[in-house]
């Protein structure tokens, strides 16, 4: 029981971190067919920014806010400088965003030094709750709670606001929303920046979770996030949550029970989805 709960909590927490990356990716792809391989770089920048702001402000909320601000600024720069020139060309997008991912990673080393950094958990989130023989680490529950809150807020925006309605319509048919008078480029910039902010938030939450951060950390999560986007259905926001939880849990349980398969399991999941339901678990287009 103890073990099961731990694996479950661990898997859910990892799933939420992946979700924070994947939700942005899926909307970016759904809206403009843009493949952004630099997204993991924003995750890493969020982590480093949070550590820096934590030291500077002494407040965990300061750290989170600083990371999100960093994500917003980097998102704005990335969209304007890197993505805009390569709209509509997937090969160019892959090349230029992969290249920019390397640039972001190297810039981290320039700014913060080449070594990995330690990241502290704030006092009030340190430690664990004990229920009988079950021990639950507080910080992991915190990550899950933030993930659920983010999902709820974004789902509210998508379902209940004008801009959310336009985003959903744009994912279904972007020519049509333009023909109805909507400036798709502005809309996309907005979504891209929101996605970048979420990625940075993910990185900031990851820092205390792992305890150490390093410049290349974004890559592994970005790959998982791409797998999640494929499994969940490109452009589907609820799909990205479900698939992220699935991938998080599969990773957590497999790492314990069948360690040899823990890396392959996500690929297998993705392959299975592509074979039996190539549009992903959820469909957003159509």
């Amino acid at each position: 029981m103890d073990l099961f709960v731990n694996l479950l909590v661990n898997g859910l927490a990892t799933g939420m971190l992946i979700f924070l990356l994947a939700s942005g990716l899926t909307l970016i792809f759904g809206l403009m067919d843009v493949l952004n391989f630099a997204h993991g770089g924003l995750f890493a920048w969020g982590a480093f920014a949070s550590v820096w702001f934590y030291t500077a402000t002494g407040s965990f909320f300061g750290a989170i806010a600083g990371a999100i601000l960093t994500g917003i600024i980097l998102g704005l720069i990335t969209e304007k400088l890197i993505i805009t020139p390569v709209y509509g060309n997937h090969i160019q997008q892959i090349l230029i965003t992969l290249g920019f991912m390397l640039v972001l990673t190297e810039m981290l080393k320039v700014v913060f030094g080449p070594n990995q950094l330690a990241a502290a958990t704030p006092e009030w989130l340190n430690g664990s709750w004990v229920f009988g023989d079950i021990i639950i680490i507080k910080y992991r529950i915190f990550i899950i709670a933030v993930g659920i809150a983010v999902f709820t807020v974004i789902q509210f925006i998508l379902r209940r606001t004008k801009i959310g309605l336009i985003v959903r319509a744009g994912v279904i048919n972007k020519e049509m929303v333009q023909a109805l008078g909507i400036d798709i480029k502005r809309l996309f910039l907005f979504v891209f920046i929101a996605g970048a902010a979420l990625a940075a938030l993910g990185g900031a939450l990851f820092a205390p979770y792992s305890g150490v951060i390093y410049a290349e950390m974004g890559l592994e999560f970005a790959i998982l996030a791409f797998i999640v986007v494929v499994i969940g259905g490109m452009g589907s926001f609820p799909g990205s949550l479900l698939a992220a939880i699935l991938v998080g849990l599969a990773g957590s349980f497999m790492a314990y029970y069948v360690p040899a398969l823990s890396l392959a399991v996500n690929m297998l999941l993705m392959a299975a989805v592509l074979i039996f339901r190539p549009q992903g678990l959820f469909t957003a287009k159509g």
């Binding site: 309605l165 959903r168 319509a169 279904i172 049509m176 109805l180 008078g181 909507i182 159509g286």
Partner: peptide, 18 residues
């Protein structure tokens, strides 16, 4: 060009943002 997963109301609202 109907937004198939949006309701009739939502389809109309996309055209009436202003």
């Amino acid at each position: 060009g109907i937004f198939s997963t949006l309701t009739v109301e939502e389809n109309m609202k996309v055209a009436m943002t202003r």
